[in-house]
Design a protein around this nucleic acid. Sequence first.
DNA 1: AAATATATTTAGGAATGGCTAAAAAATAAT
DNA 2: ATTATTTTTTAGCCATTCCTAAATATATTT
Lengths: 227, 227
Amino acid sequence: MPYNDLKMELTTAEENYLKAIYHLSDGGKKSVSTNDIAAEMKTKPASVSDMIRKLGEKEVIQYRKYYGVNITEDGKRRALQTIRKHRLWEVFLVEKLQFAWDEVHEVAEELEHIQSPLLIQRLDAYLNFPKFDPHGDPIPDEFGDVRARPRVALNEMEIDQTGQIVAVKDSSAAFLRYLDKVGAYIGARIKVLDKVEFDGSLEILVDQKKTLFMSKDVAGNILVLQS
Amino acid sequence: MPYNDLKMELTTAEENYLKAIYHLSDGGKKSVSTNDIAAEMKTKPASVSDMIRKLGEKEVIQYRKYYGVNITEDGKRRALQTIRKHRLWEVFLVEKLQFAWDEVHEVAEELEHIQSPLLIQRLDAYLNFPKFDPHGDPIPDEFGDVRARPRVALNEMEIDQTGQIVAVKDSSAAFLRYLDKVGAYIGARIKVLDKVEFDGSLEILVDQKKTLFMSKDVAGNILVLQS
DNA sequence: AAATATATTTAGGAATGGCTAAAAAATAAT
DNA sequence: ATTATTTTTTAGCCATTCCTAAATATATTT
Ligand SMILES: [Mn+2]
Ligand SMILES: [Mn+2]
Ligand SMILES: [Mn+2]
Ligand SMILES: [Mn+2]
């Protein structure tokens, strides 16, 4: 029996899968494979097969056996709602509870599943309707609309180009703590001083005073709003 | 195999049961029956039998078949930790997010299960180390110590006695909204003006200006610090 | 002390969300 | 066009947490 009840609640596990599928599909643009979902969720492909069958029945994804999944409009809406909650909680933890930006992800991963529209509405107001989370990721509004900024990976910028760090691609604690150590942060004004042909590493000027050397890998995870 | 690992994590369901057992046992003083737990948890006695066997294996309760359960010291510690989290979140919702005191319980029932010692420590500090929740219930400290105030049910006070409302026994939305409507609140100074012999109903003076009639049942759910 | 009533446990089953191992389908290589 | 490799699904199992129905133990009456 197909689930025609569009207000069907998702479980915590289903929300986590749906969020992963949303991210892997680049916001619904690409279709996603069982294996990729398994890797992202740190689980086994067999478990993913089970879960995507259920998500298909609930019509938050479209699922054709052996051909991967595509997120539906309803699924996208729900994923964005969970992402909105995740990022609002991250702002709360950093702005109000003095968490470091590398300490918030795991806790937000739990908090995002609390079911209370009133709570999120009030939290949003309490935080002054923030538009970005501590990692620079945009916070969808209550209708799921995301206002994206044009941004480019730092490793793709040319010598002498300038801009402002607005986000990180990798939100792992290890990477964020490394950025803390070298003094890179969201909002910093930067200029590319040099690019090494051989390995793609860069020399960056931060806030017109500090010089920084970084590998291509590191620069690839830093997103810049060019100016 | 008995679980000798005292750091064994409890599931959300187990935490809820343990909290119920703690409350029903009056903080570990009485032993608690399967039926009472089933009523409190709005579940079936058969399900309770299953669960208390497991809680016994994890040594948070002592369980003898057919003779009810007693909470252990470890169980008490864990229950108080969950209660602490529940009440801190209630304070947060009321003080910071403008929730009414009758809107917080269900959400706190979810939030109390978030696993992050840092989160609770920071929340506590952010709220200025509150000692009581919005319903007047004491908040255990991080070691599980509760500083209880001497308090008496309003229906047991005599004519002309005075005091201050410090808590409610019943935290249901219906009861709390009734108190809002008649103008009774935590902190209000009261005096018993009259007690009707026939049905035990009372006439109360609130804040030296407003007169209130209430049934014995209502008064029995209002707790007063006498003065 | 039996008989009756109440409380509790056991048995068996459903739904959820994992797992491993084996089968089957799709894709890549020869 | 086969063969080999990779991907995905299926089958069967386990742990949780709930349920109903039946069995059994305890408590209360007579
Ligand atoms: Mn999550
Ligand atoms: Mn983030
Ligand atoms: Mn709870
Ligand atoms: Mn409370």
